[in-house]
Write a protein that binds this DNA or RNA. Structure first.
Lengths: 116, 116
DNA sequence: TGTCATGTGTACTATATAGTACACGCTATG
DNA sequence: CATAGCGTGTACTATATAGTACACATGACA
C-alpha cells in the first residue's frame, strides 16, 4: 500500500459520513492546495513534508509514525533522540532488527513499568 | 564540536604520522574534490552525503553512526528498520529517551545474549 | 632555487524537495 | 437549471542538497 492510496482510502471513508472530508476541504485545513493533495493521493508526486503529514494524520485520525513510515520518513523527534546517543541507539536498534514484535513490545512495557 | 572541526582534528592527527592524510589525498580516496573537503572541514558548507561520510569514517577509522549524528543524520539502515515497524520502534525509542546509558546498554546486552 | 604538493577562494551546476496558481469540466442539489 | 463545490491537468517556482572545476598563493625539500 502506497502513502497516497492509503490516504485516499481513509479520507474517502470519512467523506462518506461527512462531506467536510473532500480533497478541497482537507487540503485547506492542512494548508495545501487542493490540486497538490489530489496529486499526492494519486501518487502523482512524492509524499509531502513531515509537517504536512502530521497535519494530515491529525485530520484523518491516523498514527503519525505509520504515515511517516509509508512516506519513507522517520519522525524527526526519533531522529533527534538517536543522534544524541548514536552508538547506544544504533547498537540496540540493530540488535532488535531480528527480534519478533512481542519481544520488542515486552521491552517497551518493562521500561515503561520501571522494571529497569 | 562540529562535524567539520571533528574531521579536521582527527585527520590532522593521522597526517602527523602519515602524509597520505592530507586534504587532497583523503579527498581523492573518498571521491570528492579537495576544495570541497576543505570547505567541509572549515564548516564553510554543510556536511556531505551519507555515502561520503561512510567513506570518510572508513578512511579515518571513526564510528559511522557518530559521524552521521554530528552531521545531523541517522544511518539509512536504522531508518529502514524503524520504518518497517514504526509503532513498535517509535514507542520503544521514546520510552528510552529518558533512560540512562547503562540501562540502554543493559537492554542491548540482554537482547544480544538471548535473555529474551 | 625550482618544482611539487598543499590548502583554499570563487564561480558554477545538476538534481531533489516541496510545493503554488489557475483553469477546466463534471456533478449534485436547492 | 443555474450555481456551488468537486477533483484534476498543466505550468511554474523557490529553496535545499550535494557537489565540480579551476586558479592561486604558500611552503617544503631535494
Amino acid at each position: 500500500m502506497t502513502f497516497g492510496k492509503y490516504i485516499r482510502e481513509h479520507r474517502e471513508v470519512l467523506k462518506a459520513e461527512d462531506r467536510r472530508f473532500s480533497v478541497r476541504q482537507v487540503a485547506q485545513r492542512i494548508g495545501v492546495e487542493p490540486a497538490y493533495l489530489s496529486k499526492i493521493e494519486r501518487g502523482d508526486v512524492a509524499p509531502p513534508s513531515e509537517a504536512k503529514i502530521r497535519a494530515l494524520a491529525g485530520e484523518l485520525n491516523e498514527d503519525v509514525d505509520v504515515l511517516l513510515a509509508m512516506a519513507g520518513k522517520v519522525s524527526s523527534d526519533l531522529q533527534e533522540i538517536i543522534r544524541k546517543r548514536p552508538q547506544l541507539f544504533a547498537d540496540l536498534i540493530r540488535q532488535l532488527k531480528s527480534m519478533q514484535d512481542h519481544a520488542i513490545l515486552r521491552i517497551a512495557r518493562d521500561v515503561r513499568d520501571g522494571d529497569w
